[in-house]
Design a protein around this nucleic acid. Structure first.
Lengths: 244, 244
DNA sequence: AGAATAGTGTCTGTTAGACATTATGCT
DNA sequence: AGCATAATGTCTAACAGACACTATTCT
């Protein structure tokens, strides 16, 4: 390659198109808790490659529409679910020569948490089928590409975080009871949590505020809470239950 | 885009070159502890863009040489340091339209840990200058692109991990004493650690074995240890010191 | 009143921090 | 012997787990 005196000169002669570049996509595991299960959003691919197979929602970075990687993630999320204020976290990037039949490709994975009451699934432009699938049942589906591995990485990250952060509050609706919150934590953790321990942690974290309302049912009503500072999440100094 | 009956048919007509793709690179923070400081390897860029500026070692994914993303990372590490068995961990991927003047670009960042006794810096093919710089002094250097932000992310990840994993053992030479190991932990943590607590943790983790040798000095000699299972690292259930 | 669920009190076990004490080699 | 540093003993504080107990509403 020729060298140039100034960067300006260099850039004038620079043409990206002359290089072989890997395909770059963003894929997401969008989680919600519904029917007492952790569910993930999947789409049935309408186009080649892996046409007809279930896959994580995602797609190419659109260099016109997206200013940054997370823009791509937000755009995809909005397209599939209509939700635009999820909890979003980048998980890992998978890239190699063989994961996509079109050639060397790389995908940046994110997971998103949304509350089940926000979700109204939308058929997207390419009229793909879209569905919530319990993560425990994804194994039966033979996901496209390496999406099973990607989902596993996202799921593992979420399960790790339930043990030492308040992140799962992002799966809750606007207001909720402590029992409901605990149930959500337990569903992600996959095992029951001792009630007093759980409440102590949540109280110490100081992340909730009472709404003043109560949720009544067939027995003693429960206080309703909302998240104090949405988007902030609390890190505990010790792991909870099932640790190690 | 036309549709095809079979994936084979689709792939026959598929040409990556017809798409605009972001530039894809790998950048690394290669850490070592030397002179009682955490140091990071930097290179002075020999070519545009950002010619003459210090930067993290890294570069384009070579779709011929590299089978996967981590191959690119290992290749870069080997080129700069000659080391081929580091501790390597992917940190995050940064991608946006403005971080590189050549256009929309994305970089996958890794950090590597190597022991200072393995390092023999090598000028690479493009005869870049290569140097170890204490992380505390990087601020004075005005790194190229967004490399300061990338370095910060890598540094933060390492500092977080010193609090709850045994990862820093990967900065040690083949054999070492517990006092030396503690010193390394303290350098990364940035604050002193109580000796007994530290030794209890290390003993509980059961990651070291005695070599049988002693390191003698001007006073009582210390037992020498080596890592039991290189590559494995231990996760503690509670954070150490300085937490929160 | 009794059922059912919400919410609290309190004991135990584990482990990190503090700091005193002992151990061992050198000059 | 005395110094310097390695290694250990032991007390305390913080917090998670266990589980019994109390509180409040409904039927």
């Amino acid at each position: 390659m020729a060298d140039y005196d100034t960067e300006e000169e260099f850039l004038k002669h620079y043409n990206v198109r002359q290089y072989d570049l890997p395909l770059a996509t963003v894929d997401m595991a969008i989680f919600t808790v519904q029917d007492q299960q952790l569910q993930v959003l999947l789409v049935k691919r309408a186009l080649h490659p892996a046409k007809g197979q279930w896959a994580l929602p995602g797609g190419f970075i659109d260099m016109k529409k997206d200013q940054s990687l997370s823009d791509t993630a937000y755009r995809k999320l909005k397209e599939k679910t209509g939700v635009d204020t999820p909890y979003l976290e980048q998980v890992a990037t998978f890239g190699n020569a063989s994961r996509d039949p079109r050639g060397w490709s790389l995908t940046v994975s994110y997971f998103a948490l949304i509350s089940s009451d926000q979700t109204t699934l939308s058929m997207d432009s390419r009229s793909e089928e879209v569905a919530w699938v319990p993560v425990t049942q994804v194994g039966e589906l033979e996901l496209a590409f390496d999406h099973e591995q990607i989902l596993q990485a996202c799921h593992e990250r979420l399960r790790a975080k339930v043990q030492y952060t308040s992140v799962p509050v992002n799966l809750m609706p606007e207001v909720f009871t402590l029992v409901e919150l605990q149930k959500t934590f337990e569903i992600i953790l996959g095992s029951p949590i001792e009630k007093k321990s759980f409440r102590r942690r949540i109280a110490d974290a100081d992340i909730l505020e009472e709404t003043g309302e109560m949720k009544s049912g067939p027995s003693r009503p429960a206080k309703l809470y909302r998240v104090k500072n949405k988007g902030e999440n609390y890190f505990f100094t010790r792991l909870m239950e099932g640790a190690r």
